[in-house]
């Protein structure tokens, strides 16, 4: 049940406790208790909204940055990664395999702000060897959600 609740919330974090209970043929109290436990156990870390920024009046600039790092002898990549994570303008930090080590995502009000962050904050961190910055141009899909919906196909209203 825990797994199923997690799956449902991953698809729609706003699904009500009552609906989850009805779907799983149980009562709301049990569902609420399980969700609370998932939160307390640090399994559910937060609930986020998938926004189509194009529809907003003002939108922020986003960048994905590839970062090469010299790993620390005792801590590996953790020290640098944790340090980078502390900056509020950094939204995501992942350790990845391949040609670079950390992939981070940054938001700013404009290009200059992001560029400044990279040159003055990020590149100067001990252990950071190099960075490559990719500015986000258009978003097609995020967190499993397709941003620009296709027209829906209409089914017959009654069929056998």
């Amino acid at each position: 049940m825990e797994k199923e609740i997690l799956r449902l919330l991953t698809k729609n974090a706003r699904m009500s406790v009552e609906e989850i209970a009805d779907r799983l043929s149980t009562d709301s109290e049990s569902v609420a208790a399980i969700i609370k436990k998932l939160e307390d156990d640090n399994i559910i870390k937060g609930y986020i909204v998938v926004v189509n920024e194009e529809e907003l009046e003002e939108h922020q600039v986003k960048a994905m940055i590839e970062v090469k790092v010299t790993p620390d002898r005792s801590q590996g990549f953790d020290n640098v990664a944790k340090r980078i994570s502390k900056f509020p303008e950094v939204t995501n930090v992942y350790l990845v395999s391949g040609g670079y080590d950390l992939r981070i995502e940054v938001v700013g009000q404009n290009l200059q702000e992001v560029a400044l962050f990279v040159s003055s904050k990020l590149s100067t961190i001990d252990g950071v060897i190099s960075t490559v910055t990719h500015f986000l141009l258009k978003k097609y899909k995020q967190a499993g959600v397709i941003i620009h919906n296709e027209e829906e196909n209409e089914r017959l209203k009654i069929s056998p």
């Binding site: 089914r155 209203k157 009654i158 069929s159």
Partner: peptide, 18 residues
């Protein structure tokens, strides 16, 4: 019944067999 439903607008249908 299908003909009747088709004359109406904004129907919520639980009549669909697919």
């Amino acid at each position: 019944f299908f003909e009747l439903v088709n004359t109406m607008k904004d129907v919520i249908s639980l009549g669909i067999g697919e």
